[in-house]
Amino acid sequence: MKKKVLALSFGAFLLLSFSTKFLQKQIYDTKLVQTKTLQLKVVGQNDPNVKEPYAILKMSRKSDRVKVRYFAAKSYDGTMVGSRYSSWSANKNVIAISSGTYMDLCDASIAKPMGLCIDDGNIVNNKIENTYGGIVVVYATGGMVASAIEKGDLNITNSKTHSKMTIDVRNQFQKQAFIDWAKEEKATVFQTHLFVYKDSLRLIENPNERMKNAPRRFLAVCKEEDGTVSHYIVNLPRASTLYQGVVKAKEYLKNIEDVTQIVFMINLDPGCQNFYNVHNSDGSKKLESNFNGDPNLTINQAANLLAYYYE
């Protein structure tokens, strides 16, 4: 009798294990999306035992399964970014969401983005911020490109005619053509600091920078050895100064991830709207603090959101 009960229990256990395994939802392919947390030596510190966390989210754009969407501001009818994201994400496999570029104020209900900004083809801000150096285009199809403003070499494609254009947004006529293109393509455009462009560091250390132990977050688009493109979100919860944060992220990508080229690396603002969530492959939210922003913030307080999703 005892044996029978044991055998039955064991059988039920096996069945349950397999059935839950089969029932488990996989929102993304773990070969294309990977997360890891590393404890690495602090750059510039002589003591090798002093380490700091690096939270890495790597997303391969191989076969175009990983896509990006940016919610730049509340919509024209006043719908907040949080609500826009919630309705959009209802049927999406969201990998991660993060606050994006700089806003003029911390209060999401009245905050406006800084620098040229077009949301889904709608102009949000016409003013170009030359000091940011970077301009980023998020295509309605889920792709992303960036360019250094002073290079004047932003390449855009007309989806209907497949014709290509190179735009210099500093030229007033080309800027108007670019805005018209973005309206037609329903593209999203935003500006932020472009720290690395084609492997070149574009930031000079400010000896007067006082900020210590501030969190830093960067989005890097890199070419891998096999020719594929990967997007990395490097979250440094204790990165010290901005310059040191950029150097740490760049060195990590080049030396540890061994990427062939950092096509561009931009800043994701973890200031007063420090929003960051990463999801596990089963769709649950990663609870590890290194993969989260300010725990006091709710989605409704997000002033803008960069969302990565899997299709």
């Binding site: 983005p113 102009i123 949000v124 801000n125 016409n126 003013k127």
Partner: peptide, 9 residues
């Protein structure tokens, strides 16, 4: 400026 969508930070 803000009304005209030229936001000043």
């Amino acid at each position: 400026c803000s009304e005209r969508k030229y936001n000043i930070g």
